[in-house]
């Protein structure tokens, strides 16, 4: 299988304000969000980044989708550097996170067209994709309703559809099922499997074990910004469940401090 994503020694730290230091109960002025992170993902697989809140999952995904730059290290998507040629990378990547919001004022229809234009999608292709995706997620009935007036679940679906308007080869998905009801969540996970079937690569982050077990081919466990395990899921869960594996690793690292 072709290596689509290659992450090499990523480091990223943030300055903490005095307020944040108080919340985190630390005197250190710099928080290392990601430490020397390396992994690879291959064509047609779902790779899961598993970790507790604040482990550095979102930071990693933001670096991969070129929203932020690493302090050091590199990541290549289809051999193109996210640091040196972010604009090329953006064309190949679809990024979805709850941080990225859609303007309330516009309708799904308008937004889909707008983002398709931003990705320079030809008009006929755009129309075809819009029809396909809108009917798949049941957005067609709400295509003319302003985003502000849509339900939370429908907003999420619109955001998902818009983020893959340009039919990217790599889909980066931060907490894909967060805040969705079980039915919508199933629609989303089924769709991810379908994308995988089309040969797309999907990188997702989550703290939900069952999601990883059900969806992912391989998983990387991140704790405190470091990748402690990266393995295919079958090997990892041969003897015990993913949950047991995770807590074993977690206590090993954190020791008595927990």
């Amino acid at each position: 299988m072709e290596e689509i994503l290659k992450v090499e020694g990523l480091n990223k730290s943030f300055k903490l304000s005095s307020k944040q230091r108080k919340i985190e109960k630390t005197d250190e002025k710099i928080k290392k969000a990601v430490v020397d992170l390396s992994f690879s993902a291959y064509e047609g697989e779902i790779f899961g980044l598993l970790g507790p809140n604040g482990a550095g999952k979102t930071t990693t995904l933001r670096i991969l989708s070129t929203l932020i730059k690493p302090d050091s290290g590199e990541a290549y998507i289809k051999g193109i550097s996210v640091v040196k040629e972010p604009e090329k990378v953006r064309n190949m990547v679809g990024f979805l996170t709850s941080e990225l919001k859609l303007e309330d004022f516009f309708t799904p229809d308008f937004l889909f067209d707008f983002f398709s234009d931003m990705y320079k999608i030809p008009d006929d292709t755009r129309q075809e994709r819009k029809q396909y995706l809108f009917s798949k997620f049941g957005i067609d009935k709400f295509a003319g309703v302003k985003v502000a007036n849509l339900s939370t679940g429908m907003k999420q679906k619109v955001a998902l559809v818009v983020s893959i308007a340009h039919d990217p080869d790599i889909i980066i998905f931060d907490e894909p099922t967060n805040g969705l009801d079980v039915i919508t969540a199933k629609v989303v996970t089924d769709f991810l499997k379908e994308l995988k079937g089309q040969g797309k690569t999907i990188i997702l982050s989550t703290h939900i074990f069952s999601l990883v077990e059900k969806m992912c081919d391989r998983v990387g466990i991140i704790i405190d910004g470091e990748l402690v395990v990266c393995s295919d899921i079958d090997t990892l869960t041969k003897e015990k469940s993913l949950e047991d594996v995770f807590f074993e690793l977690y206590y090993e690292r954190k020791g008595d401090s927990v």
Binding site: L102, E103, F115
Partner: peptide, 17 residues
């Protein structure tokens, strides 16, 4: 306003310079 509402970032992940 777009920054505050989090809609600006959606523009920034597009390949438009």
């Amino acid at each position: 306003g777009e920054k505050e509402r989090g809609t600006f970032a959606t523009l920034l992940i597009t390949p438009v310079p």
